[in-house]
Design a protein around this nucleic acid. Structure first.
Lengths: 236, 236
DNA sequence: CCGGCAATTTGCGATAGCGCAAAACGGGCC
DNA sequence: GGCCCGTTTTGCGCTATCGCAAATTGCCGG
């Protein structure tokens, strides 16, 4: 297991306020690991023995009901933390994390957290900020699910993904990791069938170009219009 | 403005780990205020100059879209904090808070927070816990909205309210503050019409007894069954 | 290069829940 | 005690979206 270079993590929000030269101290507690595409990093309900920092790749967090339905909680991009159960007082992970791409993560033992917090009080504040942001995002999502129709929700979801992980091409913005219709359905509270129909429609209007687990926004601007459109407005 | 007795707040989660005798120091920064039923405590978008602790009454937090639709984010019960914008790094309140009952709140200036945190480091951790719990609740809500039908969602919402603010009667559990069909609709992502139809149905089956802004769960157990029922299961 | 599998597309009902509108109700205030 | 207004109920048609099923497609592994 290779040593992690402090410069890799120095700029991350979590470590704001921690002196770069102190980061070695943090890294001493950490190890890194590689997860191949589609491998599970941790499972919902498992003991939260570690928390994670994504260095490379993409991770999907999902939550499953007792009856087996699942939703995508979020996609993690490099630089973000995940599996923070312990920070909010949970002994088990509330969601499952899966690498959707070959991914490299920094693993910190949950047990080290209290020690780190004591040593670097700024960490708690940073963590609070992180969780707070996620809370807001959740509320936004609830608001959307309550007030918008499926097409608008899908538009919002794709725009968000594009902003988060978009790779600019000259003919549009490509979402930079494999994502299926089913995934999008689970992000927006609908079915893969409906997502497929919507994307087909958009494709024939030149709004997107998509294929197997691959989506390119060809005309982000018009998608923004779609996302903001009220149920009735606009021509046929 | 009356002095607040430390014993009133000593047991609150936010102050866990703070010595009771130190609470005076906190209270020196605070003032209390009374908000009559239906008055607005702060408005979404306003500068977050204070944060709040509910002492008596009930407060509803709502979030409104640019186009005017709104959802109920949560109901605050005595002992809980609200308006924590500053703790998560927001300069403006992300929601509106309204007293749904005559309510008494403890008001703490946002400006005092950094000072308090420095003095009582446990506060940050407590806050993290609080926000973390809310994040989880949000995720649960998203999961429900994604996977359950309206009737089940309403059942869950009522059960939660009953647990939070239920007053036990010998003939059931009454939700202890005024709540309209519209409110429930905004908690569950549906319309007041649908909620009304559902409650009417339940009433005729003896599950609830309800009236103007008033709901009594007559048969919580059967409502639990409803809440857990999968779309198809069970007889007509 | 081919077989097989997972992802996607699409057609075709079925329906839960919406939206509108109107009527009934209930309480508080004067 | 009666009036006024906000809340609730309910009928009725409509449609967005689901659910199922079958056909198609594109990849990956061998």
């Amino acid at each position: 297991m290779a040593k992690v270079d402090p410069s890799l993590i120095a700029h991350l929000p979590l470590f704001g306020g921690v002196k770069p030269e102190d980061l070695d101290e943090v890294l001493r507690e950490a190890r890194s690991a590689r997860y191949p595409k589609n491998s599970v990093i941790f499972e919902q309900g498992a003991d939260a023995q570690s928390f994670f920092l994504l260095l490379h790749g993409h991770v999907r967090a999902t939550k499953t009901t007792p009856t087996g339905e699942q939703i995508v909680v979020r996609y993690v991009v490099p630089g973000e933390t995940f599996g923070l159960a312990m920070a909010i007082g949970l002994a088990q992970y509330p969601a499952t994390a899966t690498a959707v791409d070959d991914s490299v993560v920094l693993i910190l033992p949950t047990a080290a957290w209290p020690r780190l917090v004591e040593r670097f009080p700024a960490l708690t504040a940073n963590m609070l900020q992180t969780i707070g942001t996620r809370l807001q995002e959740s509320h936004t999502r609830i608001l959307e699910m309550s007030t918008q129709q499926v097409e608008q929700r899908v538009a919002h979801a794709l725009l968000r993904l594009a902003k988060q992980s978009g790779k600019k091409l000259d003919h549009g913005i490509e979402i930079d990791f494999p994502i299926s219709r089913q995934d999008i359905a689970q992000m927006t509270g609908t079915t893969l069938h409906t997502v497929s129909r919507i994307l087909s429609g958009w494709e024939s209007q030149g709004l997107v170009e998509s294929g197997r687990q691959r989506i390119i926004l060809r005309d982000p601007h018009r998608i923004v219009l779609l996302a903001e459109r009220t149920a009735d407005s606009g021509p046929a």
